[in-house]
């Protein structure tokens, strides 16, 4: 179609206006749709791990049991960190939309710090599990499923912290104008997702599974 594209070949007078408008999802940036697709696959992934965890609750043939080993206060503190980080991430987004670079960077730093705090809390918890309770991945089914589920979640938090840190570094450069087109928004979606997964993990591991 060098010169005669489709529109030209049909005279405008004959255009019937009963056709639906273009792009039902036209408002959505392709990166947003891509992130949603990716998060759907993550739902399937964590869903499988959670199903495995629930299947094996109480099936261990040896100790320690979740009731003996898990520390609720620490888990609650971790949960608070992560939930709070979701709020700060949201505030960072709001600040960016208002155009306040300083506020954006501040809330972003807070989010990163809370995420790092969560990871540190997990490290403390694992240390205690391994050295005080002797719970390793090979000890019993509880250890097997616990380390797999919580470990993969922690890995996702780590990736999230790295992504947010990358955003933080880029915000110092001229590339921010590009970030405003949605780069931070989709990273924050990922972050909220990781947060939601933690709530499920918390419910399954620390509440339901004890």
């Amino acid at each position: 179609m060098s010169q005669a594209g489709l529109p030209q070949s049909i005279s405008p007078a004959r255009r019937f206006e009963r056709h639906a408008p273009t792009f039902e999802l036209g408002a959505a940036h392709s990166a947003q749709v891509g992130m949603v697709c990716f998060l759907c696959s993550e739902v399937a992934f964590f869903g499988t791990l959670v199903v495995a965890y629930i299947t094996y609750i109480g099936q261990s043939t040896a100790g320690p049991t979740p009731a003996e080993a898990l520390s609720i206060p620490l888990a609650v503190a971790n949960t608070i960190c992560l939930v709070a980080s979701s709020f700060t991430a949201h505030l960072a987004g709001t600040a960016m939309h208002r155009g306040g670079l300083g506020g954006f960077r501040g809330w972003l730093a807070a989010t990163i710090a809370l995420g790092a705090l969560f990871l540190a809390g997990t490290a403390v918890e694992w240390r205690s599990l391994i050295f005080e309770h002797g719970l390793t991945i090979g000890r019993n089914l509880f250890g097997t499923t616990y380390y797999t589920l919580v470990g993969f979640h922690a890995a996702h938090v780590t990736v999230g912290v790295l992504l947010l840190s990358l955003m933080f570094c880029l915000s110092a450069t001229a590339a921010l104008s590009r970030l405003r087109t949605g780069g931070f928004e989709i990273v924050s979606w990922y972050w909220h997702f990781v947060d939601t997964v933690w709530i499920v993990v918390f419910a399954v591991v620390y509440v339901f599974g004890r």
């Binding site: 697709c37 759907c40 696959s41 993550e42 399937a44 992934f45 869903g47 499988t48 791990l49 495995a52 094996y56 991945i137 090979g138 019993n140 089914l141 250890g143 097997t144 499923t145 380390y147 797999t148 993969f152």
Partner: peptide, 24 residues
């Protein structure tokens, strides 16, 4: 999108069983 991740998760479990001594 919905079918591949469960396979990956199951393969990871199997890998942990084989190399880390897990018990899935």
């Amino acid at each position: 999108i919905f079918a591949i991740p469960p396979l990956t998760a199951a393969q990871i479990m199997l890998l942990f069983d084989r190399s880390l001594g897990a018990h899935f």
